[in-house]
Write a protein that binds this DNA or RNA. Structure first.
Length: 283
DNA sequence: CTTGTACCCTGACCGC
DNA sequence: TGCGGTCAGGGTACAA
C-alpha cells in the first residue's frame, strides 16, 4: 500500500504519541505477520515491558526502537521493524477501531497510557520483526540512499544507475538502488522527467538523470506535503486520507489524455507490475 | 554480480 | 447468482 510519503506520514502521526510509552501487552493474531525467525512467544517477550523511543523510517520500513525500562536515555537495544507492504494499517486509540473499517485485526500493542496500537492487514503480506541494533544496521546498509536526504545527489544517482541494464522503471522500485519509491511514484517521477520507463538505466544521459533526480525528489516532497496518496483503503492513523491521488498525472490514468501533450496514456506490465506512461512525451 | 520468476494472501471487479 | 480470470501501493527466496 504505502510508499515513502505514506509511511512518513504515518510515522509523523505516531511518533509523538508513542514516544516514551511502555508496551504492557502484545497480541499477534497470525503467525505469518511475524516476518523474522522469532515466534509469537519470543516476539512478546522481547516487546513487553520495553519503552518506545522515537519512531523512525527507512525506505518503506517503520521502526519502533525498544529501550529497557531502566535505561531509557541510553541507545535502544532492539528495534521493531514494520513493513506495511500492500494493505497494512495502524490505528491508535483508547478502544477498538471501527470493526466495519478494520476487519482484519493482525496485532495489538497495549500501552501504559491505556491506549492500544492496532495493526490491521487484509492480505497479511506485511508484519513485524525484531532486530538487534547490529542486525538492523546490516539490513539498513543494504538499502539505497534516502531520496529526500541532502546527500542524495544527481551525481550519486548517476553512479548507481551506470552499471545497470534493467529498465529504469524497474530500477526505481529496487530498494537497494534507491529507497522508498514504489509503483505509483516510479511512474509519476518518470513522467515528470519525460523519460521512457523501458530505457535501460545505464543508458540514461547525465541530463536525463539530473531531471529524474529532481522529479523523484519533487514528487515525493509534494506527496508528503499532501499526506500521501489515498485509494480506497489507505488511511493515516488519525483516520484522515491523503490528497495526492488528485494530483497523479499518469498512475491509474490509462486511456486518459497526457496533461502535457494530450496523447492517450498507456499501461504496460514490467516485472509483473503496471507502468503508466505517455508514449509521446516520455522518450 | 545481475536478471527473471514464483510466491505470500484476500478482496474487488469484470465478463460470461 | 456463481465462476474464473485479473489486478492491487511490496519484498523475498531461489534459479539461471
Amino acid at each position: 500500500m504505502p510508499e515513502l510519503p505514506e509511511v512518513e506520514t504515518i510515522r509523523r502521526q505516531l511518533a509523538p504519541e508513542l514516544l516514551g510509552r511502555r508496551i504492557d501487552c502484545v497480541r499477534v493474531y497470525h503467525d505469518d505477520l511475524l516476518l523474522g525467525p522469532r515466534n509469537r512467544r519470543e516476539f512478546r517477550r522481547l516487546c513487553r515491558g520495553r519503552r518506545l523511543g522515537p519512531a523512525g523510517r527507512r525506505a518503506k520500513f517503520l521502526l519502533f526502537p525498544l529501550h529497557r525500562e531502566d535505561a531509557c536515555d541510553a541507545k535502544p537495544e532492539a528495534v521493531i521493524r514494520t513493513q506495511l507492504r500492500m494493505t497494512g494499517r495502524f490505528w491508535l486509540g483508547g478502544q477498538r477501531p471501527d470493526p466495519l473499517e478494520f476487519r482484519h485485526p493482525g496485532a495489538e500493542f497495549v500501552l501504559d497510557d491505556g491506549r492500544t496500537l492496532f495493526y490491521d492487514d487484509v492480505r497479511r503480506l506485511g508484519g513485524f520483526d525484531i532486530l538487534s541494533i547490529p542486525e538492523w544496521r546490516a539490513v539498513e546498509g543494504r538499502l539505497g540512499p534516502e531520496p529526500l536526504s541532502a546527500s542524495f545527489t544527481a551525481r550519486r544517482l548517476a553512479r548507481r544507475l551506470e552499471p545497470l541494464r534493467a529498465p529504469i522503471k524497474h530500477v526505481l522500485l529496487d530498494q537497494r538502488r534507491i529507497a522508498g519509491i514504489g509503483n505509483i511514484y516510479a511512474s509519476e517521477a518518470l513522467h515528470r522527467a519525460s523519460i521512457d520507463p523501458f530505457k535501460p538505466a545505464g543508458t540514461l544521459a547525465y541530463g536525463e538523470i539530473a531531471r529524474l533526480h529532481r522529479a523523484v525528489r519533487r514528487v515525493l516532497r509534494e506527496a508528503l506535503d499532501a499526506s500521501g496518496t489515498s485509494f480506497s483503503d489507505y488511511r493515516a492513523p488519525d483516520g484522515r486520507s491523503g490528497s495526492f491521488q488528485n494530483r497523479l498525472r499518469v498512475y491509474g490514468r490509462e486511456g486518459a489524455p497526457c496533461l502535457r501533450c494530450s496523447t492517450s496514456l498507456e499501461r504496460a506490465v514490467q516485472g509483473g507490475r503496471s507502468t503508466f506512461y505517455c508514449p509521446q512525451c516520455q522518450r
